[in-house]
Each structure stands twice: as structure tokens, then as C-alpha cells.
Nucleic acid binder design. Structure first.
Length: 606
DNA sequence: CTTAGGG
DNA sequence: CCCTAAG
């Protein structure tokens, strides 16, 4: 491609034995627009230079030259991490010196980054696509995750224009891409991960569990610190393959987006992040924050906005849709088109990116220009009927989900895979499959919605996707939050297992019927689903069953119904308890004698 | 928020 | 299971 210029020589010394990939500036006369490009060169163990592949080459605009140096800079930390070849560093530093501020950033940031982050990093598959350029290098050398982390974070925060990013990203021309990924990363990160990130970023621990807050902080911190060059490399040998694949996917997506509009991508990003935010803070934020934007979001939006019409954030879109549904006319914010949004917009593209995350976008004309926005379906997923309620329901369910998720999370470890939307996305599908009942809305729509929704939930719901959950009982605390993708869907029906019933009965016997919350706490702590109401309902049913059965006695237990056969023993027990309960509660009120009397009577009767 | 009941 | 009224 061009003449290799640069510090390659230095490099070779640096990396003992192992070959290293470096970025070296070279002038490419060929380039029309981009006079300068960086070429990756791998240094073989013997010191030979091996030309980088096409993929490895990055082109940079003149204006972005300085960025290039950033890239170099980026390397520095990297090398440092690896072998800490001082010589090399010096070289790099000299080059970089010009980039004073950047330098500073690195200095501060790297040290602060705790090694622990590795774990986190490893979990994240999505983050690193950008690094594909460096894969070679990465593969060869196991690098501490610090870099990764910075990487991961960075994209999120600086999303917008940071030049370095552009330079670094595999496809220089697709700056948005990296940004997108960044967004995703943050969004997907579990709270724990976010906390880690926070720690890495600020050098201090945080106990805050609010995702939104964490994300904001992190984003802000990154921005403030200037944009740390993301360039770094990714590190996981194991994941390289996966990464690449993902990156490819992403690339595709990006290219798609790019094709549509340069700006489109941007808008897309911002909204998505927003959406996530919504999801998290749903309870409080959703309705309220009509005009509220996330700082990071704002930031990015603003910057991008400069050139193109600012795209509506997802939140905004949601609002619009709400409005639409309500049929309200007032478009306080943007006069453009509420109603049209839903009607006219067409699903532009459905892209499957890393993980299995599905992104659906649609074109919306706003302020005269078309923009691509995440497609948010207004269609109610389940129960099409309840029009008015739909909205409400949605919110409620979100809340519920959130709550449950939280609960379950406490019980469980964070699953490493959580981050993968894959898991989440599959979840809904699995469920729907297992649950014939809801196939009614079989339209393609449904799927999309599900995916989208699931995305929202996924953050909080690392849970396992246990199949129907009924197979295992109590012991395996598998509490699968019923949440699943469909925000509004009613709780997935969960058959009561024998063990559950038993526990319930025990609980009732111990704490008395009516102490559902107690029972739930003590006997069903592991099962986050089963709410006190559920317990109550179940008990009610048991009661009914027990009495229904008693008359015919022997026959009763044999229910032909699909419902599980409740062992007679249990039913009997239930009955007994029921009687007892009926009497006992009054105890306070009635005299012991009377109670006892009643009880006896009943038993006799029975 | 927890219960109790009806749907 | 969901929803809602009550305490």
C-alpha cells in the first residue's frame, strides 16, 4: 500500500520472540482524500516486517492526523502492559508528546484500572469488535484486560466524534460503528460490571446499583478525561474468533446503516442507549422524563447534530408513540409527525448484530430529512384488546420485571453470559415455543417486538433461561424471572410443582394462611416468581381442590385434568390446615373453647 | 405494601 | 394469573 514508515524497528526489539502488530504512519499518495494512512505491520519474531492485511489498514484524514498519534499512544499502554519495553515506550512517548492531553489521560487511566476488570472483560464478547484490526497482535500476546476495559468504555462515552476512535476502528470510515458497540456494551453490562467499570474509570469503588447512574458516570468520566483512545486491543485469545465473527456482523450492519445515511447511524445509536436507559429506570423515569436526556446521550447527540438533523431519541420516539396511541395532538417537542411515525415509517432494516441482538430500524422523516430510528413497535404484544391498558401494562410489567430481576440477581451469581443478548433473545423464543397459548400474534411483528423488548430486559436479566422451570423445583432455586422479553405479557404460566405446593402447605401450617408475605419470604425466597398473591391463589385452589376431592374421597385424587395430581396426602393436609386455620385465627377473638369446638365439629363432619 | 376476592 | 379494593 504505502511505504512503511515508523518505529517498526523499535518494535521488534520490544517484543521478544513474539511478533507484534504495529501501526505505522505512511504516506499514501494514492489516497485521494486521505493522504495519510496507517498501516499495520506485524513484526515477526526474527524482526522481519510482515505487511498487514487489508483489513489491518486504517486510513485517516489529514485532520485526523493527530489522532494517529493517539493510536500510537494507545499502543504504548498496551506494550507497557505486555512486556513493558521501556525503550519502546520512550519512542512512543516522543511521538506522542505532542498529544499532551491524551497522554495524560492514559497515564491516569491505566494505572487506575484494576486488573480485576479482566473478568469482566472476558465476559464481554461484544465489546471488542473494533479491535479486529489488531487481532493478530492480540492473539499473540495475552494482554491484561485493562486495555480492554478502557476500550469497552470508551466507545460509549465518546461516541460522537472523537477522532481517535475513527482512526482506530477497523473501518475508519465507520466511526459510528465503534460507537454503537460502545453503547451496547454499557447497556448490556450488568450492574456489577458497570461498577467494575466505574472503578476502573474513577479509581474508586462504588456501591451504587443504579445502572443509569453508573452509565452516566462512566460516560461522563470518560468524556471528561478526554477520549481515551480506544484503540487498544482486545485481548482475549479465546474470544478472538467470536469477536471477529461478531465484528463482521456488526460491520455488515454498519455498512448497511452507513449506506442509508451517514447520520442515520448516529441517531440510531443514541436512541438505543436511551431506550436502555428507559428500560432500567423504567419505573420512575419512563413516564416522567419526557424531556430528560441522559448526559452521555445528550453529548453524543449534540455533537452529531451539528451536521444532520438531530434524530429523536428512542425515548422521544416512545413518547411519540404514546402520544399517538392516546391520539393526542399536541406535539410539544417536535411538530413532525406523531401519527405518521407509526403508520408511515417502514421497517427499514433488521439487522442482527453481535450477539443475536436484533435491531430494527425504520426510516422516519423528521424535519424534512429522513432519519433512521430504532423501530419501536407500538403494538401490544399480548392482549391486543386492552387498548388503554396497554401502555400502563407495559410500564407495569417493566417494573415488575425489573423487580423480579433484581431479586433473582441477588440470589444468583451474575451469569457471565448475561451480556450476550443471545441468551436473552433466545429466551423469549423458547418461551413462546413452549407456550402455545400465545402464538396468536404470530405476525412477524411479534418477533421483532420481542427482541426489542428483550433487549431492554436483558440487562437486568441474566437469568438462565430455564426451560419451563417446572421440572425442577424448589431446590434448584431456579427462579426464572418470568419476565422475559415481553414486557407486557402476563407472567409466564408456571405450573406449581409438588415441592412448591408442599412448601406452601408447610408454610401455611407454620405461619398460617394469610401470612403470604411471610411464607413467601421464608419458604419461597429462592423462587422470585411466586408472589405472595400467587401463594394465596394457589392456596385457594388447593383448598378448593381439597374440599372438592374429599366428598368423593378416593375418586377425587384422580383428576383427569392435566393439572398435576396432588397427592392425597397433601390435599388432606391442606384440608386439615384449612380447618385449623379457619378456627385458629379467630382465636384471639373467640375463646379457645369455641375454637376447639368448631374444629372438632368440622373434623367430625369430614 | 399486603390481603382478600372476583374475574 | 390478573386486577382491584381495602386496611
Amino acid at each position: 500500500m504505502g511505504t512503511v514508515v515508523g518505529t517498526v524497528d523499535d518494535c521488534r526489539e520490544m517484543f521478544e520472540g513474539s511478533s507484534q502488530t504495529r501501526i505505522t504512519p505512511f504516506s499514501s499518495t494514492n489516497q485521494i482524500e486521505n493522504p495519510v494512512a496507517y498501516k499495520l505491520v506485524r513484526v515477526a519474531g526474527d524482526g522481519r516486517l510482515v505487511p498487514a492485511t487489508d483489513e489491518e489498514i486504517l486510513e485517516v484524514n489529514e485532520t485526523d492526523m493527530h489522532i494517529a498519534s493517539d493510536a500510537c499512544q494507545t499502543l504504548q499502554p498496551y506494550t507497557d502492559q505486555v512486556k513493558s519495553p521501556l525503550e519502546y515506550n520512550e519512542e512512543m512517548l516522543q511521538k506522542v508528546e505532542q498529544e499532551e492531553r491524551l497522554d495524560n489521560v492514559h497515564g491516569s487511566q491505566i494505572p487506575s484500572t484494576p486488573p480485576d476488570t479482566n473478568i469482566q472483560c472476558s465476559n464481554e464478547n461484544i465489546l471488542f469488535e473494533e479491535d479486529q484490526v489488531h487481532h493478530e497482535a492480540l492473539l499473540q500476546e495475552p494482554v491484561p484486560c485493562n486495555i480492554n476495559q478502557s476500550n469497552k468504555i470508551e466507545p460509549c462515552s465518546n461516541a460522537e466524534d472523537s477522532p481517535e476512535e475513527t482512526a482506530l476502528s477497523p473501518a475508519a470510515q465507520k466511526p459510528d460503528f465503534s460507537r454503537v458497540r460502545g453503547e451496547i456494551c454499557l447497556d448490556n453490562l450488568p450492574i456489577k460490571a458497570l461498577q467494575e467499570t466505574f472503578r476502573a474509570t474513577f479509581g474508586r469503588e462504588t456501591t451504587v446499583k443504579d445502572k443509569t447512574w453508573l452509565k452516566r458516570r462512566i460516560a461522563m468520566g470518560l468524556i471528561n478525561s478526554c477520549d481515551v483512545p480506544t484503540t487498544n486491543l482486545t485481548i482475549k485469545d479465546n474470544k478472538l474468533v467470536g469477536k471477529q465473527e461478531k465484528s463482521n456482523d456488526l460491520t455488515d450492519v454498519v455498512s448497511k446503516d452507513m449506506g442509508d445515511e451517514g447520520g442515520a447511524t448516529n441517531s440510531k445509536d443514541a436512541p438505543s442507549s436511551t431506550g436502555h436507559v428507559n428500560g432500567h429506570s423504567n419505573a420512575s423515569g419512563h413516564g416522567l422524563s419526557s424531556h430528560h436526556y441522559c448526559p452521555s446521550e445528550d453529548y453524543s447527540s449534540e455533537q452529531r447534530a451539528a451536521k444532520r438533523v438531530r434524530k429523536p431519541t428512542r425515548r422521544y420516539i416512545e413518547e411519540l408513540s404514546e402520544t399517538d396511541e392516546k391520539q393526542q395532538n399536541d406535539k410539544t417537542m417536535i411538530p413532525s409527525k406523531d401519527p405518521r411515525l407509526s403508520e408511515k415509517s417502514e421497517v427499514r432494516s433488521i439487522s442482527v448484530s453481535s450477539g443475536k441482538r436484533v435491531t430494527v430500524t425504520r426510516m422516519v422523516s423528521l424535519a424534512g430529512s429522513e432519519i433512521e430510528v430504532p423501530y419501536v413497535s407500538h403494538v401490544r404484544r399480548s392482549r391486543p384488546r386492552e387498548n388503554i391498558m396497554a401502555l400502563m401494562e407495559c410500564h407495569n410489567s417493566c417494573l415488575e420485571d425489573k423487580a423480579s430481576a433484581g431479586e433473582s440477581n441477588l440470589n444468583l451469581r451474575l451469569s457471565p453470559s448475561q451480556l450476550n443478548s443471545e441468551v436473552v433473545n433466545q429466551d423469549p423464543m423458547v418461551k413462546s415455543a413452549s407456550r402455545p397459548v400465545q402464538k396468536e400474534f404470530a405476525t412477524s411483528h411479534k418477533n421483532h417486538e420481542e427482541h426489542i423488548l428483550s433487549e431492554v430486559d436483558q440487562d437486568m436479566e441474566p437469568e438462565h433461561i430455564d426451560s419451563s422451570g417446572n421440572s425442577s423445583d424448589e431446590n434448584n432455586n431456579n427462579d426464572m424471572p418470568i419476565i422475559q422479553g415481553g414486557a407486557l405479557r402476563r407472567k409466564h404460566h408456571r405450573a406449581w410443582t409438588l415441592s412448591e405446593v408442599t412448601k406452601l402447605v408447610d408454610g401455611v401450617s407454620k405461619y398460617g394462611a394469610g401470612k403470604w408475605s411471610e411464607i413467601k419470604k421464608l419458604s419461597f425466597s429462592s423462587q422470585s416468581y411466586r408472589t405472595s398473591v400467587d401463594l394465596k391463589d394457589k392456596w385457594r385452589n388447593l383448598l378448593k381442590a381439597s374440599f372438592a376431592q374429599s366428598p368423593s374421597n378416593s375418586m377425587g385424587s384422580l383428576k383427569k385434568h392435566g393439572s398435576m395430581h396432588i397427592p392425597m396426602q397433601i390435599l388432606v393436609r391442606v384440608r386439615e390446615l384449612a380447618e385449623k386455620q379457619a378456627l385458629v385465627p379467630p382465636v384471639s377473638k373467640a375463646t379457645g373453647d369455641s375454637n376447639r369446638k368448631e374444629k372438632e365439629t368440622r373434623s367430625d363432619f369430614l
